[in-house]
């Protein structure tokens, strides 16, 4: 006996397959990570004598554009999963490809934003606001990069699994999808907190 049960099918009394429970647990821990950082933001801001208005230092239109990019990528992520559910592998490839491209676009825009800051000699050590800005968006960017690596794997070599274990592959896409939506959600909190408030 060495086949692990419930890798694909759901367990009746819990209603989930293993990896689905796993990703939710992982996301719970991510919530705690970003929760701690958001609390840091609140505590330092409350204690600060003066706090710059985000828009005075950051470029709101560019931030808005990037928010739209990420939200769109979440939508295409869902479409790539439903394509698999409908047995349409070619469409899956297209949508996942678009998701990856959008994620890359987000990073390119972000790095231009960073570049502009550095050019004007705005570094994290300048103020608590910039310290928070760079730390939080940097950590978020790392999550995006991690996502891109995994998505690209499933778009390329990892997609071979579709031929042998279609159900399992579909589950995997659902799982990374959940992760991707989470990363998106983090940005949806970050954007107003840093750019607008």
């Amino acid at each position: 006996m060495d086949v692990i049960p419930y890798t694909v099918e759901e367990r009746k009394d819990t209603g989930v397959f293993n990896a689905k429970l796993g990703i939710w647990l992982f996301l719970a821990s991510e919530v705690m990570l970003f929760g701690a950082l958001f609390s840091t933001y609140v505590i330092l801001r409350i204690g600060a004598e003066h706090w710059p208005h985000g828009a005075s230092l950051l470029n709101v239109p560019i931030g808005t554009f990037n928010t739209a990019v990420l939200i769109t990528s979440s939508v295409t992520m869902v479409f790539s999963w439903t394509s698999l559910k409908e047995n349409n592998f070619a469409r899956f490839k297209n949508f996942l490809g678009i998701t990856i491209l959008l994620a890359l676009l987000f990073l390119v825009v972000k790095s231009f934003e960073y570049g502009a800051k550095f050019e004007h000699h705005h570094f994290p050590k300048e103020s608590t606001f910039l310290a928070i800005y760079f730390t939080l968006t940097g950590l978020h960017a790392l999550h995006i990069i991690g996502g891109i690596v995994v998505l690209t794997y499933f778009w390329g070599p990892g997609s071979k699994m579709w031929e042998t274990q279609a159900d399992r592959f579909t589950n995997r896409i659902e799982i990374v999808g959940l992760y991707w939506h989470f990363v998106d959600l983090v940005w949806i909190f970050l954007f107003p907190i840093l750019y607008l408030l």
């Binding site: 990570l33 970003f34 701690a36 994290p124 608590t128 310290a131």
Partner: peptide, 21 residues
């Protein structure tokens, strides 16, 4: 553990990027 990881990241920023968290 994640909040300690957050704290670690902030301390790393303080030490390496000279922020003042």
């Amino acid at each position: 553990f994640p909040p300690l990881e957050a704290a670690g990241i902030l301390q790393l920023m303080d030490r390496v990027a000279h922020t003042s968290f």
